[in-house]
């Protein structure tokens, strides 16, 4: 079976119940009937505003919580089918996450060596004829960091970009096949964002690592991924090849998202009377998208748009 997708998400739903002190409980549909496929060595971008369910979707695939309905298959096997701790650990090894905040995702009391040595030994990833130290060094070289200066540094001695490389290294150390990167560049300086994207791109091309890239930045999504899924209110509103979505978005929300990306070549209209036109339009699109009950329809091969 060569055309089996590496990751298959089938009809996944998740509802959170919020219990507040002052009012009754409230249901939040974080994910509603999410389905997509992602081939081995490919990258898919989940794009949407905060609260659209894109991070929830990534976390569901990483197995960080139980889903209410549907199934998630990694390499053809359901992630919920693991029966013992060995199988669970194997699932965890294959699917790794890189988080948005490089400052919070490393332990400030441990060195870089510890951050890489620990996953290596926990998952028994040191092959015969090699030592733990050699493997740590090899992993650091994979993410273009110099082992001779990095090994004994603590997270506070590293820049944001270096920390994010350590986070990627940690995922690589255990032999991750799918890396779920949740806004990995949004807390980094603009001047180093591209280098992290380039590193991910290289890992994808040279190592065949599959990426699920979660972002609200359509430009970087287009840069890294083959396909993009635009999410709103826990649902996918448009899915298709990234360059087509950027060139010719079909769904009203995708168009809104795209038109909001800062474009240096267009001055914004500074007329006070019309200053709020964009805002009104955005509210209208959001309300219509939230209220629509249309199904996701295939408009051309591999291209899906939710009907109004």
């Amino acid at each position: 079976m060569t055309d089996q997708p590496y990751l298959e998400v089938k009809g996944v739903s998740k509802t959170y119940t919020l219990k507040t002190i002052f009012s009754g409980s409230k249901q939040v549909k974080a994910l509603q009937d999410i389905s997509f496929k992602l081939g081995r060595g490919e990258a898919l971008a989940l794009v949407g505003e905060s609260g659209s369910g894109k991070s929830t979707c990534g976390r569901a695939i990483a197995g960080m919580f139980d889903i209410d309905a549907g199934d998630i298959l990694v390499n053809g096997k359901s992630i919920t089918s693991a029966r013992n701790s060995k199988e669970k650990r194997e699932n965890a090894r294959k699917v790794q996450m890189v988080f948005q905040d490089p400052f919070a995702s490393l332990n400030p009391t441990h060195t870089v060596r510890h951050h890489l040595a620990r996953p290596l030994s926990l998952h028994s990833r040191v092959p015969d004829g090699s030592t733990l130290e050699q493997e740590v060094i090899r992993t650091l070289e994979d993410v273009e960091l110099d082992p001779s200066v990095m090994l004994d540094k603590y997270p506070h001695e590293l820049s944001g970009g270096q920390r994010q490389r350590i986070n990627l290294a940690r995922a690589l150390a255990v032999g991750a096949e799918l890396i779920i990167a949740d806004e990995p560049t949004s807390m980094l300086d603009v001047s180093i964002r591209r280098s992290i994207l380039n590193l991910m791109n290289r890992l994808k091309k040279e190592r065949g690592i599959t990426f699920l890239y979660i972002t609200h930045d359509l430009a970087t999504a287009h840069y890294l991924t083959e396909n993009t899924a635009v999410m709103f209110g826990g649902r996918i509103v448009e899915f298709g090849p990234s360059d087509l979505i950027v060139r010719d978005p079909q769904h009203a929300y995708s168009k809104l998202l795209l038109s909001s990306v800062p474009n240096a070549h267009t001055r914004i209209n500074a007329d006070f009377e019309h200053a709020r036109d964009f805002s009104k339009f955005a509210d209208k699109v959001r309300a219509e998208t939230a209220a629509s009950t249309g199904a996701l329809e295939e408009i051309s091969t591999g291209r899906f748009v939710r009907a109004a």
């Binding site: 505003e49 930045d217 800062p262 914004i268 964009f278």
Partner: peptide
């Protein structure tokens, strides 16, 4: 967010 960013800038 990008959309809200645009709204505020406007």
């Amino acid at each position: 967010d990008v959309v809200v960013q645009r709204e505020i800038l406007q």
